[in-house]
Amino acid sequence: METLLSHSFDYLSSTAPQKIRKGLRQVEGLLAQLCLSKTSHGANKRQSMLLLGSTTLSPQSKKLSDLPSDLAFREFFKLQQSFQWNIAMRLVSCLERLLGKESNGTNDMLIIQTLDLIQGVLLLHPPSRALFSQEIYMNLFLDLLDPSNCPAIQSSTIMALVTSLLDQPQNTRTFESIDGLLVITSLFKSRSTSREVKLKLVEFLYFYLMPETNPPKISSSTSATNTAILGGRGKEVIAAFDRRRETVNGPEGGVGGAKGPKMDGPTRTTEEKQNLLGKHLSNVQDLVEDLKEGGGVFGVNGV
């Protein structure tokens, strides 16, 4: 797996569109094998490659409960804990370079493919979402929501943005601090925005307005599961990716280490976020009422 990642990273760091596309396809192939194929035995690995290249056969999807015992996923997860092998970081760097290029059909397709892979990696490896607590990376999403970009880029950006915010209150605070709500609502109110993008923006607003909770504390059973997935390195991994949260909230779970029920993290309620969104949008109360009645539409069509 390290050899495959090394080759794909080399392609992703290239300036040639053909090489970037090849790197993206290699990453996509790796993620597809993790999600769609049984890779516990050599024969199944060979069968997986045949299935991935076939247009008539449909690989069987893995169940989430199968992942702790899946050797390929355990190896993938352990590698992603290392900066050297972290796919999300390489994809974000690739996205930065693509944004610096002239807009054309080829470049737009590469941007969309990169965004889709970022979404997939963040779902498979949630700790990588911590990247987007930094303004420089969150700003990439806001740049891609510029009205000058095509609807396909805007739609893929919204989905990747949502994935980066899942169970990450600190990322949401970063999004708010760099005027993310202004960007979202301005795009929503623009007459030039396509209907498809506006529907995804409505889904995003439902998602944003949901009340936040801090990630649950690690229980003994959860710790055992993490250790099984990570091959015995659960404690070290959890500590490494909780370190940034501790610098924000303090080692006791509160800001600056303060104790108390309201100091468990930088979370906000629906009412608090309604007030923030109301500065940019007039009918937020309708969204909130709809959310309370039926949970909005995001839970059906979104992540």
Rank of each mutant, 00 (worst) to 15 (best):
K200L: 15
S128Y: 00
D179N: 15
N107V: 12
S148E: 07
N171T: 06
C150H: 08
E196R: 10
S194H: 06
M138P: 03
V121Q: 12
L115I: 11
Y137R: 04
I153E: 11
P126A: 12
I158D: 05
P147G: 02
S128P: 00
L145K: 04
L144H: 02
S155L: 08
F141H: 10
L166I: 15
Q154I: 03
D146I: 04
L122C: 13
L209I: 04
I112W: 01
D146L: 13
Y208L: 06
T185L: 14
M159N: 12
S194G: 14
L115M: 13
Y137E: 04
Q170E: 14
Q170L: 15
T174I: 09
D143V: 07
F141T: 03
D108Q: 12
D146N: 14
L124G: 11
Q168R: 12
M138R: 00
F141V: 06
D167C: 14
I178C: 01
F141P: 00
L110M: 02
L166R: 06
G180N: 04
L209Y: 06
D146W: 07
L142T: 13
S192D: 13
F188M: 15
L142K: 02
I153A: 10
N149S: 05
L161M: 15
S133N: 12
R129T: 14
F132N: 02
K200T: 05
D108N: 14
L209C: 08
T157N: 10
F141Q: 07
E196H: 13
P126H: 01
F204D: 02
S192C: 03
V202P: 03
R129K: 13
R129D: 05
F204S: 02
G180T: 04
E176D: 04
R173V: 12
P169G: 04
K200N: 13
I178V: 14
S186A: 11
R195P: 00
I158A: 05
R195I: 14
I136Y: 08
P147H: 03
F188E: 04
Q134A: 08
I111N: 01
S148N: 08
L123G: 08
L110G: 09
R173Q: 11
D146Y: 08
F204V: 01
D143I: 09
L205A: 05
D146R: 09
L161R: 09
C150V: 13
G120L: 10
A152Y: 03
N149R: 14
S164W: 09
Q170R: 13
V202G: 00
T172Y: 06
I153Y: 07
T172R: 15
L144Y: 05
Q113W: 03
D143F: 08
S164Y: 07
D143Y: 05
A130P: 02
L201D: 00
L145Y: 11
L165K: 04
L123H: 08
I112M: 02
S133D: 14
S148I: 15
K189M: 13
L140I: 12
Q134E: 13
A130H: 10
P169E: 11
L123I: 09
L187Y: 01
L124H: 09
T114G: 02
T114M: 05
F175I: 06
Y137K: 09
N149Y: 14
L131N: 03
P147E: 06
L124K: 05
S177R: 13
T172N: 02
G180R: 00
E196M: 11
F207H: 04
T185M: 15
F204W: 01
S156G: 05
D179Q: 10
